[in-house]
Computed example of a mutant assay.
Amino acid sequence: MRRTAVADQTDPTAAGHPSRREPAQAPARSEADPSGGKPEPGFLSQLFAPVAGFGVTFATMFRKVRTQEYPEVVRPTQKRYHGRHQLNRHPDGLEKCVGCELCAWACPADAIYVEGADNTDEARFSPGERYGRVYQINYLRCIFCGLCIEACPTRALTMTNEYEMADAEREPLIYEKHQLLAPLGSEMLAPPFPYAEGKTERDYYRGQVTGPTQRQKDHVAQRDAEASSIPTEHEEVPR
């Protein structure tokens, strides 16, 4: 005898199937209990409800203020802070910048402008063949990214911790070379002057020059004496 399959009597579309259960409905509110069974708020909670949001304010009013009073109290920066740039010198006073303009090429904001010039035996400002005759940094464009520092081959350009450079005008924020050049140390001489005796350009970059020599001091003294003997525009030349 052939058996016939009995169809499943449980229809998933039926109303009584577990998958077709109706969502539970919230109890209807009656006219006698409009709150739906929830307890009504007390009198004190209703009274202080408008000022409950000021709890955080009142809690912090009497705490110690941690704000630093700038500029009366200047907070020190980190050692590797990217602040104002500086053109460094060698121990004898010669400039490290050789006017290669790599910093200007690496600047993504086009904030650096450099004009190089050739050194001569009579007027030497750096150990290399050239030096930076014109050096400008436009701090209206500078983003203090430090890419110019990485591009400098002689470690001439570094960044200091100085950050107080705000000004009410635009022109003072374009720094010239005399503003960026590091000040002379106690033993340094003001260029131009010749190499140290027996030293070459490579010796400067190797750190073998630790200070000015006597020959360099004599050259600078003679140069200053000759410059002081030249009459200025307002002085009359003796006849």
Rank of each mutant, 00 (worst) to 15 (best):
153 P>S: 12
148 C>F: 02
183 P>A: 02
197 E>A: 14
26 A>P: 13
179 Q>V: 07
218 D>I: 10
144 F>Y: 10
91 P>E: 01
102 L>T: 04
222 Q>R: 15
12 P>A: 08
234 H>F: 13
216 Q>W: 10
130 R>F: 13
111 A>S: 11
206 R>I: 07
54 F>T: 06
127 P>L: 08
170 R>A: 14
238 P>V: 06
66 R>C: 11
214 Q>M: 15
36 G>F: 02
225 A>I: 03
145 C>M: 12
61 M>R: 13
74 V>T: 11
9 Q>L: 15
138 N>E: 10
181 L>H: 01
90 H>L: 14
163 Y>L: 15
234 H>Q: 12
151 A>C: 01
211 G>F: 03
51 V>Q: 00
107 C>A: 03
85 H>M: 08
138 N>Q: 06
79 K>C: 12
29 R>S: 00
169 E>S: 11
192 P>T: 10
59 A>N: 04
36 G>H: 02
200 T>W: 11
190 A>Q: 11
198 G>Q: 12
138 N>H: 07
100 C>V: 13
130 R>C: 10
167 D>L: 05
93 G>Q: 01
168 A>R: 06
77 T>Q: 09
71 P>Y: 08
6 V>Q: 02
125 F>N: 10
52 A>I: 03
204 Y>S: 06
199 K>G: 10
218 D>W: 09
234 H>R: 15
151 A>T: 02
96 K>F: 09
112 I>S: 03
5 A>T: 04
231 P>A: 02
9 Q>K: 10
86 Q>F: 06
168 A>T: 10
31 E>D: 12
46 Q>F: 12
28 A>G: 08
164 E>I: 09
86 Q>P: 00
187 E>I: 00
77 T>H: 13
232 T>K: 14
223 R>G: 04
25 Q>I: 09
81 Y>K: 03
74 V>C: 03
128 G>T: 13
186 S>K: 14
45 S>D: 04
207 G>R: 07
187 E>G: 00
44 L>I: 15
210 T>A: 08
117 A>L: 03
99 G>C: 01
144 F>K: 12
4 T>F: 14
84 R>K: 07
239 R>V: 09
64 K>P: 02
61 M>N: 09
183 P>Q: 01
140 L>R: 15
158 T>S: 07
29 R>E: 02
86 Q>I: 09
125 F>K: 11
205 Y>R: 06
65 V>F: 12
15 A>R: 14
39 P>E: 01
76 P>Q: 06
78 Q>E: 15
67 T>G: 08
156 A>W: 09
142 C>Q: 10
68 Q>N: 08
196 A>Q: 11
159 M>F: 07
49 A>E: 00
36 G>W: 03
220 V>D: 08
154 T>R: 06
212 P>L: 01
85 H>W: 10
107 C>M: 06
90 H>R: 07
111 A>P: 08
218 D>A: 15
130 R>P: 04
101 E>G: 11
11 D>H: 02
40 E>D: 07
104 A>V: 04
31 E>P: 08
